[in-house]
Amino acid sequence: MKPVNFDYARPSEVASAIRYLAQDGVSAKIIAGGQSLGPMLNMRLVQPDLIVDITAIEELRSVQDRSDAIVIGACVSHSDIEDRRVPDVTRGAMASVASGIAYRAVRNRGTIGGSLTHADPSADWISILAALGADVTLNGSGGSRTIAVENYMVGALEADIAQSELLVSITVPKLSASARWGYYKSCRKTGEFAHAIGAFLTDPDRGVSRAVIGATETRPFVMTDAAALIGDGRNPERVFDQDAVGRLCESLGMTDPIDRQTHVVALRRAIERAH
């Protein structure tokens, strides 16, 4: 189980990475930690001409602390967040979720940007960052653009990224002291992919109330105004309407009743176990 041969480049600047990606007639793939691409290469599911390793680009391995948000470079690893080498502005949400991604040895190399760009519906970052209201910033030959994380993922394994674009950072808003968040994922075994994810955030001081149903067959279902559904994130038994959420899932294409049940329960438990 060995990859096909490929060429390798390791630029030290975003611009030069983009130049590699923009070459015509070359199937180039970006690699960061390689924890998703590596297996696919080994299995020859992916057979690129060129691998562009972006981990030597310093700005992608850095973090900027702004007044209202923190900007995390795309190559920051899951364990960087788990260990809080990245300052926590999410009342522990990101560190907690990071610690549940796959296994420690994977978290030591896997990156937040790689995970988002891989656009796996079952991955953790897409769901929790959608709940937190994060944005992603991409650079390309045409300039830079910033979009909401839930819009970055357009479908299973498809991110809104052009061949010559590079995800450079993730902007996570700072939560207020009164914010509450919850996250629940259902896996058959530790470190295994999620069959259902529920996530929510209420931040009354900032007027934010978001809920996410993730690990669907496609992009997560994101409710950007979820106040009616989750209330203040307390006492879900009073507010949370299981049937309504089930109908919502069905309307979004989740036809299998067991899938629906599992996802609805995941969101309810996320609220029950809020922090």
């Binding site: 297996p39 299995m43 058959r188 075994k189 530790t190 470190g191 295994e192 992919f193």
Partner: peptide, 14 residues
Amino acid sequence: ASTFADYLLPGPTE
């Protein structure tokens, strides 16, 4: 099932 992601072996928590 062609990988250990499809074929689940019990780990320490299982």
